[in-house]
Design a protein around this nucleic acid. Sequence first.
RNA 1: UCCUCCUUAGCUCAGUUGGUUAGAGCAUCUGACUGUUAAUCAGAGGGUCGUUGGUUCAAGUCCAACAGGGGGAGCCA
Length: 480
Amino acid sequence: MFNNRIKIKELLAQEPAGQQVTVMGWVRTFRNNQFIALNDGSTNNNLQVVLELGKFPEELLKRITTSASLRAQGVVEPSLGKGQKMDLKATTIEILGDSDAEKYPLQPKKHSLEFLREKAHLRFRTNTFGAIFRVRHALAFAVHQFFNQKGFIYLHTPIITASDAEGAGEMFKVTTLPMDGTAPKNEEGAVNYKEDFFGRATNLTVSGQLEGELGATAFGEIYTFGPTFRAENSNTARHLAEFWMIEPEMAFCDLEDNMNLAEEFIKYIIGYAMQHNAEDLQFLDQRLAEEEKQLPQDKRSEMGLLDKLKFVVDNQFERITYTAAIDILRESNYNKKKKFQYEITGWGMDLQSEHERYLVEKHFKKPVILSNYPAGIKAFYMRQNEDGKTVAAMDILAPGIGEIVGGSQREERMDRLTTRMKEMNIPEEELWWYLDTRRFGTVPHAGFGLGFERMVQFVTGMNNIRDVIAFPRTPGSAEF
RNA sequence: UCCUCCUUAGCUCAGUUGGUUAGAGCAUCUGACUGUUAAUCAGAGGGUCGUUGGUUCAAGUCCAACAGGGGGAGCCA
């Protein structure tokens, strides 16, 4: 029987008054042959388990090592020491799993994030990663709660897709054909995917959007929240080969409705985490402050983590058009002093991340929603504006992270859509099912994609995306 | 993929213009102490200096390639 245990988070919320309890967890430190700091993952706060001297056999004490797991039973009393309000005076200690102190790689001290990345299977047992993954959970839960409250349907779009027309990047192939050169060939000498498992070439999804639109044009409002894959050789602190994306799609919705929803959504999930994970965020706030002490003054954030989150929740995002952004950039002192590495060449150029960062971090100092981009730098499905030059696209840029949301109103007019597809060499035959939504009861609709890990980065203040996903997949790296 | 930096004990890092037996703190082990807070004190063990090749009388130190990692850029979420 294990279900008679009380979680440490719950116990620490009580007043110590002689309760008889059972706790289970992992040893963080064992001081003085007398004091166990026990952690069970429910909170970063440890329970101090006190062993009366001489009451427990030497052989047992020797087995209480860092990360050993144990069951402790005893009585809860106010602590005599200063660091905690209660002690568990142990009557029985039972080691559930030994941990060889000479071999266990984590010590009760500061480890670098790079080191812990190589110990990703054990890093959950540290304070930093404990806090990160509890916050990640809260954000994921808040995503579902937000959309559920609004009557959105959670649609599971496929992970294996046949379409490679989405243009969102390089894809991972999915096949059961042999890789040793003996795969069946067609007349042209290429691999004959007609003989593959699905009878055609298939890939891992790069986006659930196109399928999401099929759902939105029946249910009205849907969202997806699932794994997404990109086979790009991207080696940065904000890219993964496998990541989680949230993609709402709404019928009867234009660009402005879309921006409103995205802003409300971001504020909601941040607010949820602030409310439900205050201690973890406080810990991460301090961690970030400590880390930034190492940096030169000009590299430090102007606001602490908690202040930043509160600011984002309490203030309107700045909304400007792409065209206005180009003007701001062109007129900026930064540009006049030639501080940009990439020149502001003028309307039509794609913004580089240094330009986005300037707008967000230097000019507006708050999240910015950029909208109505030139058609030439955006995807085929985005709705063409009446000016004949721009499309109803929007990106949300967050301080320190960059693009966190990319979305648009979709082109619902069949003729406009197919003309655009021809221009961009997107084969209509492959997307016949997508085009059917425009054939049968087409409707103005819009949606966006939010990179979940980037959101977790923003809320936890972690600057490497590999530290906010349990087991990161990046080029050359798929351990665990 | 490009640019740049890094790789010395389990971890974090010193190691001088190339020079003889490569150091520290923490961790670990042994002992002492016992209301501790990353406990403290004393002692001990622990290294193919990322790999391969080269220069040199001599390489942790200089050069090259490769591998792994960090930071920045591109692609994007």
